[in-house]
Amino acid sequence: MSDKTDLLGRLSAAGVSIWLDDLSRERLQSGNLDELIRDKHVVGVTTNPTIFATALADGESYNEQVRELAARGASLEEAVRELTTADVRHACDKFRDVWQATDGVDGRVSIEVDPRLAKDCDATVAEALDLWKAVDRPNLLVKIPATEEGIPAITRTLAEGVSVNVTLIFSVERYRLVMDAYLAGLEQAKANGHDLRSIHSVASFFVSRVDSEVDKRLDAIGTDDAVALKGKAALANARLAYAAFQEVFAGERFAALAADGGRPQRPLWASTGVKNPDYPDTLYVDQLVVADTVNTMPEKTLHAVADHGRITGDAFVDTVTGTADAAGEVYAALERVGIDVTDVYLALENEGVDKFEKSWTELLETVQGQLDAAEK
Rank of each mutant, 00 (worst) to 15 (best):
G161E: 05
V98M: 10
H200N: 13
A153H: 08
R89D: 06
S171L: 11
Y175I: 01
P145S: 11
N139E: 00
R156Q: 15
L196H: 08
S171A: 15
L83P: 07
R108F: 09
E127P: 06
A159E: 06
L117A: 04
V162M: 09
S204H: 02
S204V: 10
A91L: 08
P115I: 05
I169A: 08
Y175M: 11
C121D: 09
S171H: 11
A126G: 01
P115E: 10
A153T: 10
A86P: 11
C92T: 01
M179V: 13
S208T: 01
P115F: 08
R137N: 07
E112Y: 12
R116P: 00
Q188E: 13
D103L: 08
D87N: 13
P115M: 10
G193H: 10
L183E: 00
A128P: 01
P138I: 08
Q100H: 15
W132S: 14
V162Y: 04
F205W: 07
S171I: 05
Q100R: 15
Q188L: 13
D106F: 12
L177N: 11
H200S: 15
L177Y: 14
S208K: 01
D130H: 14
T124H: 08
S201Q: 03
L158P: 02
L186A: 00
P115S: 10
R108V: 00
A86I: 11
A123L: 12
N139L: 08
S208M: 08
A146Q: 00
S163A: 11
P138C: 10
Y182N: 01
R174F: 02
T84Q: 04
I111R: 00
T102I: 09
V207Y: 04
D122H: 12
V88D: 02
T102D: 09
F170S: 04
C92H: 04
L140I: 11
D87F: 12
V166P: 07
D120Y: 08
A203F: 04
A118Y: 03
V164W: 03
E112Q: 15
H200C: 13
L183C: 05
G193W: 09
D97K: 14
A146H: 01
A159P: 01
I199N: 03
G193K: 10
V113C: 06
D180H: 09
I199D: 02
N192R: 14
V172L: 08
H90P: 05
I199H: 05
V113W: 07
D180A: 15
S163F: 10
K119G: 06
G161R: 03
E149Y: 14
I151G: 00
R174M: 02
Y182L: 04
M179A: 11
A189G: 05
I154T: 06
T167P: 05
I111H: 00
V142L: 07
K143P: 03
A118D: 00
V207W: 04
P152N: 03
R176L: 15
H200Q: 14
F170Q: 05
V105E: 12
L117R: 11
T102N: 13
L83T: 02
E127W: 07
D180I: 08
R137W: 09
D103A: 15
S171C: 09
R156A: 04
A153W: 13
A118I: 03
V98D: 07
A203D: 02
I111T: 03
V178T: 06
L196G: 11
